[in-house]
Amino acid sequence: MISTHQLKYKYPGGNVIVFPDISCQSKDILLILGSSGVGKTTLLHLLGGILTTQEGAVLIDDMEVNKLSGSAADKFRGKNIGIIFQQNHFVDALTVIENVMLAQSLAGRSTDKSEAKLLLDRLNIGDKANQSIKNLSQGEKTAGGYSQSAHQPAQTHTSRRTNISTG
């Protein structure tokens, strides 16, 4: 479950952005719409602990994300939150499957190659597993980005993980 309470954020030299309280139950999907510059990405970054909350509270599965210290927030994010970016980013030095395994390892779990392969198969890019990121088409890159954010077999990640996406 995700919920926010009286969340506000102010960039240096900018206006205070006031966010309406939101609430999203487990297995629900929430769509946030808004015109350019109202703070959609800022909200997502606050939810993911990428930005430090200045005022208000963010709760994910009863964890007050805004109270976590820097490294605890990094760990919590790695373990519990999947983020798919507008622009897909990868570690260029690694192959497709190694990018997925890197995500597994940074989430604090042991790497599992067969699990990573299964995930890529489900996203229809299993045949590109051992290729360089450069060889992926735009669409395949999006799938690759999803695979990094998921990095758990599809049937289990929905129950535990919170995925947020921009775009």
């Binding site: 993911g48 990428i50 820097g70 490294s71 990094d74 760990k75 994010r77 790695g78 373990k79 983020i83 622009q87 980013h89 990868f90 570690v91 260029d92 890197l102 995500a103 940074l106 989430a107 604090g108 990094q148």
Partner: peptide, 16 residues
């Protein structure tokens, strides 16, 4: 810099 940001998002702390 995007790679490093990605690694951070995926759960790596500053020390890592």
């Amino acid at each position: 810099r995007y790679e490093l940001a990605l690694i951070r998002v995926l759960g790596a702390g500053r020390t890592k």
